[in-house]
């Protein structure tokens, strides 16, 4: 067991513990903060698996931007966590059935994987230069589509956020 493997198991335990805490918290602020820890752990894992550039993006975009967006929304919306209802028991049984079926399938597929998947993986690192060159060499169309998708998301968010205000102003101007 090399030092890399020790790091991997520590980081994996950290990620699973933080995510498990996040999905069981009653207060959404606690859940979001636990998930930030989980995403930092994921960034460390990406670095360990030889992907430094996705690791940096994980910290900047996931832990930095998306989670801060969640925090803002949680602060905007006022919910009493003591007053929230729970599903009836039958819904929990159905959800448990779906999750159990998925987990059994996942473990079976992992156990049935070939002998090559059981060998320890050799360590390798893709430098940011190689990664960026590959990305813009092979996937330039996907990059453009992603930028278009982000633009559409921006316009849609603006429309949803400003829709009622804009209509009210228009009505007020007409009168």
């Amino acid at each position: 067991m090399t030092i890399y493997a020790v790091f991997f198991y520590i980081i994996a335990a950290l990620i699973i513990a933080a995510t498990g805490l996040a999905i069981t918290r009653k207060h959404m602020v606690h859940a979001v903060l636990c998930l930030v820890v989980s995403f930092f752990g994921t960034a460390l894992l990406f670095y360990l698996l030889g992907a430094p550039l996705p690791a940096i993006f994980q910290v900047i975009i996931y832990a930095g931007a998306i989670m801060v967006l969640f925090l803002f929304i949680v602060m905007m919306i006022r919910i009493d966590p003591e007053k929230t209802h729970r599903f009836p028991l039958g819904h929990y049984l159905a959800a448990g059935g779906i999750c159990g079926a998925y987990f059994v399938a996942a473990v079976l597929l992992t156990l049935l994987s070939g002998p090559r998947a059981r060998q320890p993986m050799p360590a390798a690192t893709a430098s940011p230069f190689d990664f960026g060159y590959y990305l813009f060499d092979r996937h330039w169309l996907s990059i453009e589509m992603i930028s278009l998708l982000l633009l559409v998301a921006l316009i849609g968010t603006l429309h949803l956020g400003l829709g009622r205000v804009g209509r009210k102003q228009k009505k007020g101007g007409g009168q």
Partner: peptide, 25 residues
């Protein structure tokens, strides 16, 4: 040498399960 690929797959599977539980319940 890092860990076998199956362990990474199991980690991804468990995380996916946790997300699924959160979404469903």
């Amino acid at each position: 040498m890092i860990v076998p690929y199956t362990h990474v797959m199991l980690l991804g599977g468990v995380l996916f399960l946790l997300g699924m539980i959160c979404t469903l319940t």
